[in-house]
């Protein structure tokens, strides 16, 4: 009798604490993920724009572009590892998992598929920019749905603007365009989530 009371009390206590913690976790993760999504491409595009000499090389030469590509992958790998480390740290502090194994595996599979696509397509930097932008936007759109955010209009707008830029803006000026699209998306997306 006392046993079962204690058990159900403990259960209740857990229910009460888990809900807000889960919510804050979701905010934390989506915040980080937004950062990864928007700040990194923005920084990269802006960097190339403000150092035009390097930018022109980056843009025009496949060899240099490949170096740029490795730089990109390195950046993403470091960010991903950072997220994992943060998750592990969070886990040990609150004994709650920030990322479960499924999410990590899913992200790994999605990234691997993107790489395979790039390999098959022999994409130029310009095509890479558009491909990853559209691909990652679609991934966030679906992930957002899982957490109850309907990013569909925002996602559709990003994809449309990206494609418009791809077809109508020749050469390097595509980059500030993409930076603007990304930055705008970050701001709008942030407000969207606060409102939700």
């Amino acid at each position: 009798m006392t046993d079962s009371k204690r058990a159900s009390d403990a259960l209740n206590e857990r229910e009460k604490t888990i809900r807000p913690v889960r919510r804050s976790q979701i905010y934390l993760v989506s915040g980080l993920v937004l950062l990864l999504w928007a700040v990194l491409p923005f920084a990269d595009d802006a960097l190339i724009w403000f150092w035009p000499r390097y930018g022109a090389y980056y843009w025009n030469s496949w060899f240099v572009a490949n170096d740029g590509l490795y730089f990109w992958f390195a950046l993403y790998v470091v960010s991903a590892l950072g997220l994992v480390a943060l998750g592990a740290c969070h886990l040990s502090r609150n004994s709650i998992r920030l990322f479960d194994r499924r999410t990590l595996l899913a992200l790994l599979l999605i990234a691997a598929f993107g790489l395979v696509c790039c390999h098959f397509g022999r994409f130029s930097p310009r095509q890479q920019t558009v491909f990853w932008q559209v691909y990652i936007t679609l991934v966030y759109l679906t992930a957002g749905l899982r957490f109850g955010y309907d990013f569909a209009p925002l996602g559709a707008a990003i994809i449309a603007l990206t494609l418009i830029g791809y077809f109508t803006i020749p050469g390097v000026p595509l980059l500030p365009w993409m930076a603007a699209v990304n930055g705008g998306a970050l701001i709008v997306g942030g407000f969207w989530m606060r409102r939700g």
């Binding site: 696509c117 397509g121 022999r122 994409f123 095509q127 558009v130 491909f131 559209v134 691909y135 494609l163």
Partner: peptide, 8 residues
């Protein structure tokens, strides 16, 4: 999009 528009 991937196979015909962006890539070939």
């Amino acid at each position: 999009l991937v196979t015909n528009v962006v890539g070939h």
